[in-house]
């Protein structure tokens, strides 16, 4: 072992590097890092769950509109669009944040209705669909007037 001086010095250098590595690691890796559940699927930083859960929700669901819009809510929930949430047409409730009605979408254009109701072969057969606005109006025996849209004949909250 007499002529191994240089090897011993080499090993000592790497031991120091190793200790340094673990010291830095214990400082940088968050304490909540652990195994939750199995190692294969549950190894993660524990705080991440709470962080993800604390993100604020944007859409507030139809129930939240009931408080101020009782009458429309009742009409809507008994009508043909009862399965269509308020926010599907009116956008996220959060638009109401500044308490101005202007920021809530009230799209009564034909295009707005056609997103769901234009005839697409892929749509379920029993679903109400029309080929285009003009031919549908004619079929009903009416004349297409200027600035006419679907709401002339169909109340959006009570379409049938």
């Amino acid at each position: 072992m007499k002529h191994c001086n240089h090897i011993i010095r080499f090993i000592v250098v790497f031991i120091f590097i190793g200790i340094g590595f673990f010291a830095v690691r214990s400082y940088l890796v968050p304490d909540s890092f652990g195994i939750y559940g199995s190692y294969s699927y549950g190894f993660h930083r524990g705080d991440s769950d709470a962080e993800q859960a604390s993100i604020p929700a944007l859409y507030q669901e139809s129930e939240s509109c009931k408080e101020c819009h009782e009458a429309v809510y009742r009409t809507w929930s008994n009508g043909g669009h009862a399965g269509v949430t308020c926010e599907a047409c009116h956008g996220p409730w959060q638009a109401h944040n500044e308490n101005t009605l202007d920021t809530v979408v009230k799209d009564t254009s034909v295009e707005g209705c056609m997103v769901c109701h234009v005839t697409l072969q892929a749509r379920p057969a029993g679903f109400p669909q029309i080929d285009d606005f003009a031919s549908h109006v004619k079929e009903q025996g009416e004349e297409v007037q200027q600035d006419m849209d679907c709401t002339f004949c169909h109340e959006p909250h009570e379409p049938k």
Binding site: Q52, A53, S54, I55, P56, A57, L58, Y59, Q60, E61, H81, G83, V84, T85, E87, A88, C116, P124, F127
Partner: peptide, 17 residues
């Protein structure tokens, strides 16, 4: 972030059919 608050996922909530 919605389910943990008792809401439905945004896509499920908005689906009309």
């Amino acid at each position: 972030h919605r389910v943990t608050k008792g809401l439905q996922p945004a896509c499920v909530n908005i689906c009309p059919s």
